[in-house]
Amino acid sequence: MSETTSTPEEGVTPQRISGTLPIEARTVFRLSSSIFYIIGLLVTGALVAAAYWFDWPTWLQISFIVLLVIDVVYSLIDLIWFQKWKQERFTYDVQPLEIRIHHGIITTHDVLIPMTKVQYVHAAQGPILRKFGLQTITIGTAAGSHEIYAIEESFAKTLREQIAIYARIEEEDVV
C-alpha cells in the first residue's frame, strides 16, 4: 500500500506558497540577539573589571580578557553576518501536500513535513516583532514543531489559514 498522490479537492486550486524571510527579519534577529550579547558583554566586562580591581591572579586576568575579546568578536561576526545569513538562507515552501523548510548557516537543516501530519499552526508575536509588523508561525506535528520566523503579518495570516486548510485542521471532534 503505497501513498497515492491525491489531488486536492474540488474548488481549491493547487497553490504553492514559497519564499524567504523579508529583509526586516534581519533587523529583528539582530535586535533580539543583541540583547543576549549585551548581557554577555556586561558579564565578561564585569569579570575583567573584578579581576583587576581585586588583583586576582594574572592567569585569571588574562583568561578573562581573552574571554571578553572572543565575546566581542563573536558578537560582531554574529550581528553582521550570521543574522544576515540566517535571514537570507531561510526558505519555506508550502504546497497542498507538504511543507518544506530549509534553514541554517553553518549546519543546514532541510525539513519535510507531510500535510497530513500537521496538527496545529500557531502565530506568535513578541514586542520586537510587533514593532515591525511581523509574526512567527509555528507548525506543529506529533514529533515536534517548526517555525517560520518573522514574516509579514497579513501574509502570515493567509499562510496560516492556507496551511490549516491543506492540513484540514478542523475544530470538530471525531465521533
Binding site: T107, T108, H109, V111, L112, I113
Partner: peptide, 10 residues
Amino acid sequence: IEQIQVKQSL
C-alpha cells in the same frame, strides 16, 4: 513517519 530532517554540518 511524521517528518524527515536532513542536516549537514560544515
